[in-house]
């Protein structure tokens, strides 16, 4: 029982990180129906920027601020250069273009910071508590609280502000939204900025939780975020959080009870089964197939 509770707590913390990553992903998908395959690499790259700032003795929160500005800038530039020209192209083109962006970011990070895993020094609390034999780290609490706060903020942002209303208008009908005077390009750009910023927060939490930053966390981040988004339902913000948590729990229980060598297999088998049974995700709305 103690093992079970322990795995659940570990899984919930890891899952919250996935959730924050999945939200950025999901907002773009919900809005434009397009997989931002470079989302994970953006999060990796901007987390490295934070690390580089910290190494240059910039105070931690200053480094996070710089990282966040850089993430927003990167997110918006990538959208402008590689995705916007393809908004009306066939379905394959933007996805492939995003793969190209992911490769560029991965290669750049490799050249600048090297392929080794780097430790991530942080002033975030590192203590731990024991409750009846179950270990809870302060980082896990920080992660869960941050994720919850961001979930609430996003809910308010999307459903109770004019920004959110415009976003939902674009999602429902892009040409009409444009006709009624919504500046679609600016709004889409802002979504990439918000997504990248959330990715940065998730990257910093990930790096602080596991005390490591490495280049390949980009691809695994993309895959985990996508799986979480699909589990929860593409396009649904609440679903991203549910999916992220579900994925975290599955991976940690799978590693604890089945085998840690099959972590990826567990993730993808679950993804395939969910897609076969519920092609729109666990909480997804039924929409016309996007072939």
């Amino acid at each position: 029982m103690i093992t079970f509770v322990q795995q659940v707590i570990n899984g919930a913390a890891a899952g919250s990180v996935y959730a924050l990553l999945a939200v950025g992903y999901n907002m773009v998908y919900g809005l434009l129906g397009f997989i931002n395959f470079a989302h994970g690499d953006l999060y990796m790259f901007s987390t490295f920027i934070v690390l580089a700032m910290v190494t240059l003795h910039v105070p931690f929160w200053g480094a996070v601020a710089v990282g966040m500005v850089a993430a927003c800038f990167l997110g918006m530039s990538v959208e402008r250069i590689a995705y916007r020209p393809l908004r009306t192209a066939n379905r394959i083109a933007p996805t492939v273009s995003a793969v190209g962006v992911a490769l560029v970011l991965e290669n750049a990070a490799q050249v600048i910071w090297g392929p080794a895993t780097r430790p991530f020094p942080t002033p975030l609390p590192q203590g731990l508590f024991r409750v009846d034999g179950v270990v809870i780290t302060a980082m896990q609490i920080v992660i869960l609280l941050t994720a919850a706060a961001i979930a609430v903020a996003l809910r308010v942002g999307v459903y109770h502000t004019s920004w959110g209303r415009k976003l939902r208008a674009i999602r429902d009908d892009l040409p009409t939204a444009e006709l009624v005077g919504i500046s679609v390009n600016r709004l889409v750009s802002s979504v990439y900025a918000v997504g990248a910023a959330l990715g940065l927060i998730s990257g910093v939490l990930f790096a602080a939780y596991y005390n490591s930053v490495y280049v390949t966390m980009g691809l695994t981040g993309t895959l985990n975020a996508f799986t979480a988004a699909v589990l929860g339902g593409i396009g649904s913000i609440g679903g991203s959080f549910a999916g992220g948590l579900a994925l975290g729990l599955l991976q940690s229980l799978g590693a604890g009870y089945i085998s840690s060598g099959y972590q990826n297999t567990i993730t993808f088998v679950v993804l395939i089964v969910v897609l076969l049974l519920r092609p729109n995700g666990m909480f997804g709305k039924l929409t016309a197939a996007r072939a």
């Binding site: 895959l223 993730t267 993804l271 197939a289």
Partner: peptide
């Protein structure tokens, strides 16, 4: 097995199959 999965979803699933093979 994946005949019902389409488009971008299949893209990720096939990436996953590569990981499953490696596992």
């Amino acid at each position: 097995t994946t005949q019902r999965i389409r488009g971008d979803y299949l893209f990720i699933v096939t990436i996953g199959l590569n990981f499953i093979f490696l596992d």
